[in-house]
């Protein structure tokens, strides 16, 4: 783990942010199993350090675009738990008024361009937001989160080329979680993803995606490059998807595609557990302090579920065309 001299407060903020995502998603896993959620949910459990490490570097004026596995990015960037929960429940009080659902949570007021149902869909959009940042010249940056699977979409090559050529303030964050749906990454991916930056002369780094401090520092360097006009960075964060590609996948898959030992070995490197240990070992907080945070996050999630459950569904009798055009 990287060395730091983070204040106790900073450490606890990172911890809280990761734990918020974890608690929300544990709830969603349960909800999905119990049939409380209309659509599919793709959980981010095990990858929280990436979203939190990167987004802790950002403010509301910075942009992020995310993926089908987007709850973590939404929450880490300041999206509200209850608005996310109500959206996933398909309610009128959701952040997209039930139009989008789990795969499409977005809050433009917080710079969250949104999750995406199209693998690789966020990469070009972020590049455009980066162009806008450059033209506005307000020091903002645009961050694309995408998976190892998405790195195999041709659009990544186009985006690396144009953003480097134009020196756009963009950060490409590839979360290599070991799988592209049910295919282990190495069965569908040639070479190292991070090396895809090299022919374009794009700055690039790999980082331990389960170490929130290392991610934080890596993102800080990328942001500095972007905001001083040195163009984009490609970051490959190594992490692991602890849950299935999609909840309930066991109900339709005919065979296993990974062994439980592999899962266990990564669970033992869980980003939140590691961080807890680190905080406590460094004497920056006591276990009890962390438990207070944990209970607060649970309360926040419970409140969000209650809010969602009490909320009405959108009115199908309303104007169907609303929101298609301004």
């Amino acid at each position: 783990m990287a060395d730091t001299n983070f204040s106790n407060d900073q450490m606890l903020k990172l911890y809280e942010s990761m734990l918020r995502i974890r608690k929300v998603e544990e709830q969603l896993a349960k909800d999905s199993k119990e049939g409380n959620i209309p659509g599919a949910v793709h959980l981010y459990i095990g990858q929280e350090a990436v979203a939190v490490g990167v987004c802790s570097q950002l403010s509301d004026k910075d942009w992020i675009a995310s993926t089908h596995r987007g709850h973590g990015h939404f929450l880490a960037k300041g999206g509200e738990t209850r608005l996310l929960m109500a959206e996933v429940y398909g309610r009128d009080t959701g952040i997209c008024r039930g139009r989008g659902g789990s795969m499409h949570v977005a809050d433009f007021s917080k710079g969250i361009i949104g999750a995406n149902g199209i693998v690789g869909g966020g990469i070009s959009i972020t590049t455009g937001a980066g162009l806008a940042s450059k033209l506005t010249n307000d020091g903002s940056v645009a961050v694309a989160f995408f998976g190892d699977g998405a790195a195999n979409q041709g659009v990544l090559a186009e985006a690396l080329n144009i953003s480097t050529l134009w020196q756009l303030p963009v950060i490409f964050v590839c979360e290599n979680n070991g799988f592209s749906e049910f295919s282990p990454t190495n069965t569908v991916t040639a070479g190292n993803i991070v090396d895809r930056a090299k022919p374009y002369g794009t700055a690039c780094e790999t980082v331990d995606g389960n170490d929130v401090i290392a991610v934080w520092q890596c993102a800080e360097r990328a942001k500095l490059r972007a905001s001083r006009g040195d163009g984009p960075t490609l970051i490959e964060a190594h992490t692991y998807r602890q849950r299935g590609h999609v909840e309930a996948e066991a109900s339709f898959l005919s065979k296993n595609y990974r062994d439980s030992q592999e899962i266990e070995s990564w669970v033992s490197k869980d980003p939140i557990t590691l961080f807890e240990k680190r905080i406590v070992d460094a004497g920056q907080a006591k276990i009890e302090d962390l438990q207070v945070i944990s209970r607060a996050m649970e309360a926040e999630v419970n409140e969000a579920v209650e809010f969602a459950e009490k909320s009405p569904y959108p009115d199908p009798g309303g104007n169907e065309q609303q929101y298609m055009f301004t």
Binding site: P38, G98, R99, Y313, P314
Partner: peptide
């Protein structure tokens, strides 16, 4: 002529 909504009633 709209995008297909997520929420079941819609």
């Amino acid at each position: 002529d709209i995008a297909i909504p997520y929420s079941p009633p819609l």
